[in-house]
């Protein structure tokens, strides 16, 4: 019994090849070399960004690199903030991403519920039609969508930034798959208790779907926060720009003020990194969940 438990605790490959202690040591060494090298490659660009954001403009490109700035120029941050309305960009990004996420959570779960638990004529065809849109690349619809926004007089408005992204076929698929696994008896019981059709949605579907909804929220929020092409095309007014577009404009305008560009980039990146470290479980679970669907 004890030997059994012991064997299970050993790393798989050790049990296979029966390596010696030194074998395990060199293996461990190799392991950590690869892992640390990977971590360095991931982190260095970001560290360079932060370090450069605190440097004088003429200290950015030196060989060897000055990893510790000679003097810390926090003034770069105030300069960057003064040269473009980053506060406004931030509010726009936050508002657009949050609203889009909430709309997706509501509509994707409602539609998923309809396709999972109801029968109506044409149900399968409609579901297939929605799924098929996953194959349409955004680049194909961007020009007609732009002219549609222009005809509706929606350009330079939150409506244009939010409405075309209010639902996602992937989200509907994810929610339908999940809601299908909920037992029918739950819904019957709720109906016997007098819950209406909307009541079952709010009292059964929503509370039981928090897992996939959290995953969906992470995806939609990130997608919108990082999106560049659509807000680039639909906004020309500086007051309506999102962070991604604002940063792009900043790059074109202040192309050679590299230290300010790094300060602005740091301002955009750091909040996301902090949020990620706080919510990393949800992020990673969400991604893992998206893979399972395949």
């Amino acid at each position: 019994m004890t030997t059994n438990t012991y064997a299970e605790e050993l790393p798989t490959s050790h049990a296979v090849t029966g390596q010696s202690r030194t074998g395990r040591l060199t293996r461990g060494l190799f392991f950590y070399t690869v892992l640390i090298l990977g971590a360095v490659i991931i982190c260095l660009p970001l560290i360079w960004m932060v370090v450069s954001s605190l440097k004088a403009p003429n200290r950015l490109f030196t060989i060897p690199i000055e990893w510790i700035p000679y003097d810390l120029r926090f003034q770069n941050y105030t300069d960057a903030l003064n040269s473009a309305p980053f506060g406004r960009y931030f509010v726009n990004s936050l508002f657009v991403s949050t609203t889009t996420t909430l709309l997706n959570l509501f509509f994707c779960s409602l539609t998923g519920y309809a396709f999972a638990k109801y029968n109506f004529p044409g149900k399968n065809i409609f579901f297939l039609l929605i799924l098929a849109t996953l194959m349409i690349p955004f680049h194909v619809v961007v020009v007609p969508l732009f002219t549609l926004m222009r005809d509706l007089k929606w350009l330079n408005s939150y409506t244009a930034l939010i409405v075309p992204g209010a639902m996602s076929a992937f989200g509907i698929f994810l929610m339908r798959q999940f809601i299908s696994t909920l037992p029918d008896e739950l819904f019957e019981a709720a109906r016997i208790d007098g819950a209406g059709e909307l009541g079952t949605y709010f009292r059964i579907v929503l509370p039981l779907s928090t897992g996939p909804l959290a995953a969906l929220a992470v995806f939609v929020f990130l997608d919108n926060w990082n999106s560049l092409l659509w807000p680039l095309v639909t906004t020309t007014n500086d007051q309506m720009r999102t962070l991604a577009v604002g940063l792009t404009q900043f790059q074109t305008q202040y192309g050679t003020k590299y230290h300010l560009m790094m300060a602005a980039s740091t301002l955009v990146a750091v909040p996301m990194i902090i949020v990620f470290f706080l919510l990393q479980r949800h992020f990673i679970r969400g991604v893992a969940l998206s893979g399972i669907k395949g």
Binding site: F107, T111, A114, K117, Y118, N119, F126, M167, I172
Partner: peptide, 8 residues
């Protein structure tokens, strides 16, 4: 069911 799916 159809009404729930209609917006989408």
């Amino acid at each position: 069911g159809f009404l729930f799916a209609l917006p989408a």
